[in-house]
Amino acid sequence: MDAVMRVTDTIKSFRETRLSAIRSPTEFFDYHRFSRPGDFNQATQRITYNTRYFSGNYVLIIALLAVYAILSSPLLLIALVFLVGGFAAINRFAPEPVEMGGQVITQKHLYIALFVIGLPLLWLASPVLTFFWLVGASGVVILGHASLIEPGIESEYATVQDTV
C-alpha cells in the first residue's frame, strides 16, 4: 500500500508542477509570433526561454508521441502488456507457493518464466529503436517550435523577476 501511495503522490506532484504549466493552444500555436531567428545566439535564447515557458506543452507532446510509438508497433504493445500484466498477475494471484503435480511453484519460478518468454519478445519488438525515434521526433518538434516562436513580452520581465 505504501508503494501505491508514493506513486499517487508522485502523479499528483507531476500534475501540479508540469501539467499545470500547460499553455493554451492559441498561445502555443500563435502563428503571428513565428519567425526565423536571426542568428544562432537568438535561436539559443529562444530555445532556453521557450522550453521553460512551454514545458507543460512539451511534456504533453512527448507523451503523445510515446503513445503513438507504442500503438503503432503492435509487437511492442503485446510485449509490454505481457510483461506488465504478468507482473501484476503474479503479484496478485500467486503470492504464496502452489503445489502442482508434485512440484512446488514459487513466485521466483513464475518470474523466471515471465522473463524467459517476455524478454526475447521485448527484444524482437525493438524498444531501443522506438526510444531513439521518440527522442529524435520529440527533439525535432520541440527544438523547432522553441526556436521559431518569439518569446512574448513577459520574457523581458523574467530577468527582472530573477534579480529581485
Rank of each mutant, 00 (worst) to 15 (best):
I11H: 05
E16C: 00
M5G: 00
E150M: 12
L60W: 12
A3D: 14
R33Q: 10
L143I: 09
L129W: 14
P25T: 01
F40R: 07
Q45E: 12
R6W: 15
E96Q: 14
E99M: 08
L124T: 03
S138T: 13
P95W: 08
A146R: 03
L129R: 15
L148W: 13
F93K: 03
I62N: 10
T48K: 09
D30T: 05
G118Q: 03
V160K: 09
I61E: 00
I105D: 02
I149W: 07
Y49R: 04
V164W: 13
I112V: 12
F28K: 05
R6K: 15
F131Q: 03
F132G: 00
W133A: 08
W133V: 01
A3H: 11
A125P: 04
E154K: 05
S72P: 02
R23F: 00
F28N: 02
L124K: 11
S35R: 11
R52F: 08
G136D: 01
F40D: 04
L80K: 05
G101N: 05
D2K: 08
I70D: 03
I62G: 13
N41T: 13
M1R: 10
F54D: 01
S138L: 03
L124P: 00
I62R: 09
G85C: 02
I70R: 06
I149E: 03
V135Y: 10
E156K: 14
K108W: 03
T106Y: 03
G136T: 10
L121Q: 01
G101V: 01
S13V: 04
Y31D: 08
A69M: 12
Q45D: 10
L122K: 08
G152Y: 09
A158K: 08
T51C: 05
G86C: 03
T26E: 13
L80T: 09
G144W: 08
Q103V: 12
L134A: 10
A69Y: 08
F87C: 04
P151S: 09
S155W: 02
S35E: 13
V116S: 14
Y68H: 14
D30V: 06
Y49K: 04
K108Y: 06
I11D: 01
R46K: 09
R46H: 04
I117Y: 01
I90E: 04
P25Y: 02
A3T: 13
F14T: 13
D2S: 12
A88I: 14
Y157E: 12
I78L: 14
I47D: 06
D2W: 06
I90R: 08
L19G: 06
L129N: 10
S20D: 11
L83V: 04
S24K: 04
S126I: 03
T17G: 00
G102K: 09
N41A: 14
I62D: 02
F29W: 15
S147R: 00
P95E: 07
N57T: 05
I153F: 10
K12F: 07
N50I: 05
V140M: 07
A125D: 02
A137N: 11
I70V: 15
H32W: 01
F93N: 08
N91Q: 11
A113K: 06
P151C: 02
A146M: 07
R6C: 07
F82N: 04
L114P: 06
T106W: 01
V141N: 00
A3G: 02
L122H: 10
Q161D: 15
Y53H: 12
E16W: 04
P37Y: 01
H109Y: 14
